[in-house]
Simulated scan of single mutants.
Amino acid sequence: MQLVVARIGRAHGIKGEVTVEVRTDEPELRLGPGAVLLTDPASTGPLTIETGRVHSGRLLLRFEGVKDRTGAEALRNTLLIAEIDPEELPEEEDEYYDHQLVDLDVVLADGTEIGVISEISHLPSQDLFIVERPDGSEVMIPFVSEIVTEIDLENQRAVIVPPPGLIDDRAEIASAREDAAEPEDRA
Score class of each variant (00 low, 15 high):
38 L>C: 08
40 D>H: 02
43 S>P: 09
71 G>L: 05
43 S>R: 04
63 F>D: 03
53 R>A: 00
73 E>C: 13
44 T>A: 11
57 G>N: 13
66 V>P: 14
53 R>P: 00
76 R>H: 09
54 V>F: 09
44 T>G: 02
46 P>T: 02
49 I>E: 09
72 A>R: 03
76 R>P: 05
37 L>W: 06
62 R>E: 04
54 V>Y: 12
66 V>S: 12
48 T>F: 02
52 G>M: 10
52 G>Q: 14
37 L>N: 07
73 E>H: 12
47 L>S: 08
75 L>M: 14
43 S>N: 11
57 G>T: 07
39 T>K: 00
75 L>V: 13
62 R>M: 06
45 G>M: 09
40 D>W: 04
41 P>W: 03
63 F>E: 07
58 R>H: 15
38 L>D: 15
72 A>L: 07
60 L>E: 04
48 T>A: 05
68 D>R: 11
65 G>E: 15
69 R>N: 05
54 V>A: 07
77 N>F: 14
50 E>Y: 11
57 G>M: 04
64 E>P: 02
40 D>A: 05
44 T>L: 13
66 V>Q: 14
58 R>P: 07
37 L>I: 06
64 E>G: 10
50 E>S: 12
63 F>G: 10
61 L>C: 13
56 S>K: 15
66 V>T: 14
58 R>G: 14
72 A>W: 04
40 D>G: 05
64 E>N: 10
42 A>S: 07
75 L>C: 12
52 G>P: 06
74 A>K: 09
52 G>Y: 02
76 R>Q: 11
59 L>K: 00
41 P>N: 08
37 L>R: 00
61 L>K: 11
53 R>T: 00
62 R>F: 01
69 R>S: 06
52 G>N: 11
68 D>I: 10
48 T>C: 07
37 L>M: 08
45 G>W: 03
67 K>D: 12
41 P>M: 04
55 H>W: 02
51 T>K: 03
37 L>F: 10
71 G>F: 10
37 L>A: 09
69 R>K: 13
59 L>Y: 01
60 L>V: 03
51 T>G: 00
61 L>I: 01
37 L>G: 10
56 S>Q: 15
38 L>E: 15
49 I>D: 11
64 E>L: 10
55 H>A: 01
37 L>D: 13
49 I>L: 07
57 G>V: 06
70 T>D: 15
76 R>S: 09
48 T>E: 09
70 T>P: 10
44 T>D: 08
46 P>Y: 04
48 T>P: 01
72 A>I: 06
54 V>G: 02
51 T>E: 08
77 N>I: 06
40 D>L: 04
73 E>W: 13
63 F>L: 10
50 E>Q: 11
49 I>A: 07
59 L>G: 03
64 E>H: 08
56 S>T: 13
40 D>V: 02
46 P>M: 08
76 R>T: 11
45 G>S: 10
46 P>N: 08
37 L>Q: 14
40 D>M: 03
54 V>R: 05
54 V>Q: 03
57 G>R: 04
42 A>K: 08
56 S>I: 12
64 E>F: 14
43 S>F: 03
